[in-house]
Structure formats: C-alpha cells, structure tokens
Design a binder for these strands. Sequence first.
DNA 1: ATGTTC
Length: 476
Amino acid sequence: MDITLFKRRSDYEWEIEPTGGMRVPGVIYASEALVREMDHKVYEQTVNVAALPGIVQASYAMPDAHWGYGFPIGGVAAFDPDEGGVVSAGGVGFDISCGVRCLHTGLTADDIRGVQKLLADTLYVRIPAGVGSTGRVHLNREEMDAMLTGGAKWAVDRGYGTAADLDRTEEHGQMRDARAANVSDRAKKRQQDEMGTLGSGNHYLEVQEVREIYDAKAAAAFGLKPGDAVVSIHCGSRGLGHQIGTEFLKKMAIAAGTYGIALPDRELACAPIHSPVGEEYLGAMRAGINCALANRQILTHLVRGVFADVLPQARLPLLYDVSHNTCKVEEHVVDGKPRRLFVHRKGATRAFGPGHPDVPEPLRAVGQPVLIGGSMGTGSYVLVGTKEAEARSFSSACHGAGRAMSRHQAYRTWKGRQVIDELAGRGILIRSPSSRGVAEEAPGAYKDVGAVVDAADAAGLARKVARLEPLVCVKG
DNA sequence: ATGTTC
C-alpha cells in the first residue's frame, strides 16, 4: 500500500483524512512495514466504511487487516442509531461469532509430549473436522430454537461443560435479544447436525505450550506460566452463520435502496439499525452468536472427554472465550460523552481494559484476555485489553496473523504432506481430513503474527501477555 | 468462512 496516502499520527497510527463522501477519518493501526504490505483494498474498504450513515469517530483497521467482503477483515466501525446509524451483515462477516477459546490443562508440555501421538490421534477421531462435518448432537426444531436462544448456557444445561465455563465466556455464554424466529428454516436445517464440529479453512483445535511470558502480572492473573500446556479452539457458527449472512446481504442490498443509503460499494449492503430489516438481522445475528458459543462449548466437552481418557489427571477449566465477528451494543465515551453504539468487529477482537464490568471478576483488575490465533507453525498469542483502546478503537484489537498469500497460491506452493512432515520435524503434529486444506494453511501463507501483535501492543490496542506454540493441531 | 457456485 502507498504509505503517502496516509497522515502519520504516530509510528503505529495512520490516518486517512476525510474526503468525498467520508463522514469520519479512516485510521489504520499498524507498523509502517505492515501498512506497506497491506493490499490497497484495505485502504479502499476503510474509506468506503467511513462513508456509511451514522458512523462515529472513525473507520478503523487493525494491524492484521486484509481484503474482505465489503468491510475489511480486521475492520472496526461503530454506529449511532440516533444519527441514522446502520447495521451491516458484511460488517460482521459470514462466520458470525467466529472466535477463539483457550482452556488450561493443569499439565505441562512435557506431560503432553509423553503421549503426543496418541493425543493427536484421539483428538482427530473424536473432534469432527472438515467441510460439511457432522457431530453426535442432532437438534430437532425445539432444541434448535433453545440453542439459538441459550448459547453456551444451553449447552451447559445439557451437560456439555460447567457453569464456571459461562463465567469465562463473553455475554456470560448467552447473547441477549437473540431471535430464533428470525433465523430461516434453511439456516436451521444446515446446522441441525453440525453442532460440536470444527469446520474447515483456518479453524483448528490446538494443544499448545506457553513458550514466553511478556507481562508477569497479567499472566499470573490468567493462570499462565512457561511450560504450561493449554488447548485453543478456533471456530464459529458453521453453516447457520453463513446462511444468515448470505440471506441478509440480499435483504440489506434492497433495504439500502429503500432507505436511500448511497453505497460506495454494493458489498456494503446495510440497513438502518431501527428499520425492520436491521432489527431482524440483529435478532438473527445474535442467534448466530449463540450458535457459535454453543458450538465451542460442545467442542470443549469433547476435548475434556479425550483428555479424561488419554491424560486422566488433566483438568480443563476455561481461561476465556472471545468472538471476533460480531456487532454488539456497547457504551463508549466519544468526545467526553457516553454513547450507546452498535460496534461492528469483523476479524477484530473485543479488548476491554481493566475495571470494565463485563470482564469476569477474577480478571477484572488486569483486563480482558484477548486471544489471537496464529498459523500452525508460528503459534498464537494471549494479550490483555488496555484502558487506552477505549479511545483508540472502541476497545478492539487484532484477531490473528492475516493471510499473506491467497489459498490458491498457497496450494500451488506447498503440498499438504510436505507441510505435515516439516512441522512434525519441529515437534508439531498435524491431523486433518484435507491435504489441500493443510497446504492452503501452510505457515508461510500467513503474515508474521509476531509483527501483528507487536503492532497491536505498540499502538496501545492490547498488551502482550504470552506466546503459545502448537504441539498438536487438528485442522478442518 | 461456506452442503468450497442457487
């Protein structure tokens, strides 16, 4: 990307001054090197979002931003319903409430290495992964609606996990104001056999080792120390979320015309927050959030079952569960005044700072855990929310490494077998139903996640706490 | 991301 397009606010904050139809500035948080590496489409899309009605403060892009459908992936935008603000399905993303949860194990990485192959094989057999994978949980109409309303709480009520898990999940595991009736029969049908499944693409389940601690106080509060083994799960709302996104993009394209909203890009289809379509989407999207929360909760139960058999001394309490594809109603201070805003985070993680009432009490003094998934070879990070991010990004941070190479290019560059062998040589066991998927997810196809989290840290969006490296990875 | 193009 051409760096001269930006006004440099600091080494990690790059402003696009408002011109043309832009109602607010664009702001990209990244190092100069990351901005230069970004696709020019990130610039265009950040500019386009800034032109939407009711946008507040700025159109933001996180350090891992890349080209998405309409909104950039790694985009954050907040809208005020009282100023004509809109909600956009493309501003949430197709995989509604895709996110990451991290579980302690009470074990060390050495404990894992003793049974690493057995653990990898058992996880692979018991955790359904891949395109169209189905699970053991099958929902009739009544249970589907209960799940869409109840989220992770629904799952816990049916024996998949414990009440303590809910204390460590955003929204306490149950998104309010979800409307199962707003979710189409087709979306429900696609999901009826897909609960407790990982899906495909960049979704994964990993057993990881805590390799480095950057913030001793936060790490202690999070219960992380070097050599600890943890389990991270990255997945979302599967076919249901995708179907909701697809249907509402069409409805919003029509609604935008009806309400006379000038769209700089057709993909930015949106509707006023308080319009019938806007409210219908919000109810369905919240049901999609509950689907993703329930899905990760059932997967957690499956993982605990595997550990009970392979490493029965293990205990797997939840550290935290974050979603990085959402639109949520939050109170934020803008120009000294608190306002109720609809915050879209698409490929961006909520990152509440210390003292925020929505951070679980045992963690509140240090801030919300921010879980960042990396690639199979380079590992992942745990960060913590900061006070500064409130003013900088509506308390948001990056969500992952971001692709540096298209899936197709990665498929042409690597063979799945080659990636698996190379990682095995470094002590990382990969299990996947798709050799092509592994090639597409080769570590070399991703940006350097370390550079991304360093930029997030330096920009004050969140602070680095720990780095995790994979021992076992089940890929979809 | 996605019953990998309704």
